[in-house]
């Protein structure tokens, strides 16, 4: 029988049976693993390209195309996640 999921602002994820329940199910976040480093203020942002959607069009965005402008880059857990 399928179990009803608690709904919160984190996206629920699955995994192999027998693995510990993902932390997201409890709305807490595990510490970031050490191999991933936080970037440093005062240093260049790493350049990237990413596909996206804007006003009816699918686009490809490159961060360095915005040189000369101020950029607010926002990450969020997922579409339709309430907050």
């Amino acid at each position: 029988m399928a179990e009803e999921l608690p709904v919160g602002c984190a996206r629920p994820t699955g995994g192999p049976v027998g693995e510990a329940v993902p932390e997201t199910a409890k709305e807490t976040i595990a510490p970031i693993k050490e191999e991933m480093q936080m970037i440093h203020v005062g240093e260049k942002a790493p350049d990237f390209v990413a596909p996206g959607y804007q006003k009816g069009k699918f686009i490809n965005v490159k961060l360095s195309d915005y040189l000369g402008k101020w950029v607010l880059l926002c990450f969020y857990p997922g579409d339709f996640t309430f907050v």
Partner: peptide, 17 residues
Amino acid sequence: AGVENRGRFIIDPDGVV
């Protein structure tokens, strides 16, 4: 969780965070 945390970066016209 396989998702992004709620991060917000201010990047200046020279590409500096």
